[in-house]
Design a protein around this nucleic acid. Structure first.
Lengths: 246, 246
DNA sequence: TAGTGGTCTAGACCACTCG
DNA sequence: GAGTGGTCTAGACCACTAC
């Protein structure tokens, strides 16, 4: 009783620091503005640099800050609303502006994907890599798995691996009459290759969106999309216009 | 060329460590098993404890590990698929088993919520707290905002704040003919109160699900649900049965 | 080359759980 | 009270960016 907090437990320094910084960001900084460097901030608040970094990491996780090695720490703009659950097919022509085909190959999917696709483990399937761009920035990297049975017309085309082949696979997929889709979202950390595509360091927090496309009771394709968690707000059912929640 | 890696860049220790531990988890440990403590693991791998912890943090973020102060680090079970985007209304009777009303009050919502609700900032609305439970564990804490106009019958009931009132508000909401819903998902960190409800430390990574319920073109209610990111996989459109992606 | 954030160390102490 | 994970320090060096 009578302490400065209702709780008796002492608040960790980095947590308190985060609150102070968060308030400062609201009142004293504009989007894009560069903060003082970590060593100076740490000195100013009288903490070790590691402690200061712990607070910055939290704020970056919440999308408030953006840190770039060799450059500095800047105030991040509000997260972009990204539609991932609208009714349109993900390989429709209308998505061409957002999704850029990168390349395509044939490979055996991971065991978990093989199970989703309902193919035997080790069976090679078509893979398509795409990158999603918004406001000039890459926001997602996707790997699409398509069993050969879903795109019977592809074999006749005989296209070598590459971007052209990626477009061909997507073109064949458009012929399929989709019945539905199931999606799931979970937290993950960026693999090295995805991180590079997303202009992030390996291990950066990402939102993993797994989509299963079905037609006539069968699984036509499975997509695993890796969205930057720091800059993206995924929207479902036309929620793209929603402003962010406090 | 000729180095141990294709990349010339040296891999950070904690990243390599994470890979090694991840493989060990797959092959040598069962779900629920307790790992050696951090000091011993660090010694065994010849790194500082802070470095070892960096690897463990990543694995916990990916839902592979569960750490509890005073207890130890255990191998986490696969993430639970949690339906958040099915067609059913979130306050249907069928959800009663999953969602437990906690309490209810009347308060002015944050500015961002007021905007979503289309009420003037500072206008008091009904708030309802609920907790979602799965397999005996709390997995989500929700705060529901309901403008008085959406539940005109409530005033006549005159129920004091508490769980009974929460049930009353939900009961009145069931009278409303819902038209649709918009949802968004983003990464956040748990506030102190939510963290306590979710049996986590403040700042733990969470998935923030904001839902706007509409009827006749108007916003009936807005819900902000805080899901544990370490244990939950959010599913949309009947994807609850999907197994997790590699 | 100077300055930034990213990684790493070797310690210390604290808060918590449990026997 | 013993043992665990959580916080914190004061340094060091590295990788990257930009001038």
């Amino acid at each position: 009783m009578g302490t400065t907090q209702l709780d008796t437990v002492p608040e960790p320094k980095y947590w308190h620091l985060k609150t102070v910084l968060s308030d400062a960001l609201d009142s004293e900084f504009a989007v894009g503005e560069i903060l003082p460097n970590e060593r100076e901030l740490a000195a100013r608040f009288g903490v070790a640099r590691a402690t200061l970094r712990q607070a910055l990491e939290q704020l970056e996780l919440e999308g408030r800050l953006q840190r770039r090695r060799g450059v500095g720490t800047t105030v991040a703009p509000p997260r972009v609303g990204v539609a991932v659950g609208d009714r349109a097919h993900s390989w429709d022509d209308t998505d061409e502006a957002a999704w850029q085909p990168v390349d395509s190959a044939e490979a055996a999917p991971p065991a978990a994907i093989a199970r989703l696709l309902d193919v035997r483990p080790g069976t090679p399937v078509h893979t398509v890599r795409r990158t999603r761009v918004s406001h000039g920035q890459p926001i997602a990297a996707e790997l699409l798995y398509v069993p050969a049975a879903s795109v019977p017309g592809l074999a006749a085309l005989d296209i070598p691996p590459g971007a052209a082949r990626a477009r061909a696979v997507l073109g064949e997929l458009r012929r399929v009459e989709l019945e539905g889709r199931e999606q799931s979202v979970e937290l993950g950390s960026a693999r090295a290759d995805d991180a590079k595509r997303l202009d992030r360091l390996p291990g950066a927090p990402v939102l993993l969106v797994t989509t299963r496309y079905t037609a006539a009771g069968r699984t036509v394709a499975v997509a695993v999309a890796t969205y930057r968690a720091d800059t993206c707000r995924l929207t479902f059912g036309d929620g793209a216009g929603m402003v962010l929640a406090g």
